[in-house]
Amino acid sequence: MPFQPRVAILVPAAGFADRWQPAFARKAAALTAAGLSVDQRVWTDPGDLAGHDLILPLFAWGYQRNVSAWYALLDRLEAEALPVVNRVPVLRWNSDKAYLADLADKGVAVVPTIDVAALDAAALADARRAFGTDELVIKPAISGGADGTHRIAPGGSIPADALGRRRLVQPLMPGVLATGEFSLFFFGGRYSHAIVKHPASGDFRVQEQFGGRETAWEANDAARALAAMALAAAPAPPVYARVDMVGDGAGRLHVMELELIEPSLFLHHAPDKGAAFARAVYAAV
């Protein structure tokens, strides 16, 4: 009987209903078709993982709401030398959006970002002067699914959940409203597919839970080059990756974030429906 590697996919704890299950089914089907055996383990209490040939944190949803448990898991995976993709140094680096400064230092065009230790009105005023715009977006440095992300209109006040807290401050990028947010997907370092996500009318967030919608998109050379440059700055080559980017007022693309932990991969938009994803995972065993 041929060797069938055993893979553990980390999934959410209670509180996320069943929203993750359709995407899990697509990923599991692709992995199974490639000859892998797939198990589920709740990321907050995964139990003994030593019997698995690979661990994938693909649905570690909610880690931004339980940061101490997330970092404790990363420490455990590293201490026990368990096989994880993406690798633990990549997961740890990608957990805090301070990595945007790393990308900028390496010449990657990123959304302009100011990291504020304790957000107040003076910090917002400083950011407006620095960015030359009155429209701002604030978000936690450790966040997911637009948790705690707010659009601050001219003269707007700081939401209670952000006042005095560490927040990233960015200009509202015109492109997200005009042309949407672009996501490019890479497996084993190779480009797979891309989508463009549009926010619902009156919103700026593109996530499905806020009414966002996505369509397939053919990434141009500039988008692919920017994505490749951003991924090259990671601590190690990621096995799976999503690069989100938006345009500025002149249409130039800027990286908004790298998704290297638990990204939605939109495999139903991939021409091969996930075969390249599965091959990249199998190759990492």
Rank of each mutant, 00 (worst) to 15 (best):
A130P: 02
M173N: 03
K106S: 11
A228S: 14
I55T: 06
D248M: 10
A118G: 11
F16M: 06
R65H: 11
N220E: 13
L73R: 06
A72D: 15
V246I: 05
A127M: 09
V110H: 06
R242T: 12
V111Q: 11
W43D: 00
L54R: 05
A200I: 11
F16Y: 12
A250G: 14
E135F: 06
G144V: 05
E78G: 07
A98F: 15
A234V: 03
D203K: 05
P235V: 03
P140G: 02
G156P: 02
A8W: 02
T113A: 12
V88C: 06
S183H: 09
P238K: 02
V176Q: 04
T133G: 02
V285A: 05
A125G: 10
M1Y: 14
P237I: 01
G180K: 00
L260N: 05
L267N: 07
E135W: 01
A284G: 06
T44N: 04
A29E: 14
V88F: 01
Q4N: 07
I261E: 09
A127D: 09
G148H: 11
G35W: 00
L231V: 06
A14H: 10
A121V: 04
P271G: 05
Y63N: 09
G148V: 07
H269K: 03
A101S: 15
P174A: 08
L58M: 14
W43F: 02
P171I: 13
I261R: 10
M245F: 15
F277S: 13
L253I: 08
A141L: 14
A194T: 02
R252D: 15
P237V: 00
G132E: 01
A178C: 08
D244R: 12
Q170S: 06
E257T: 07
G164K: 14
Y282P: 02
G35Q: 02
A178T: 12
P238I: 00
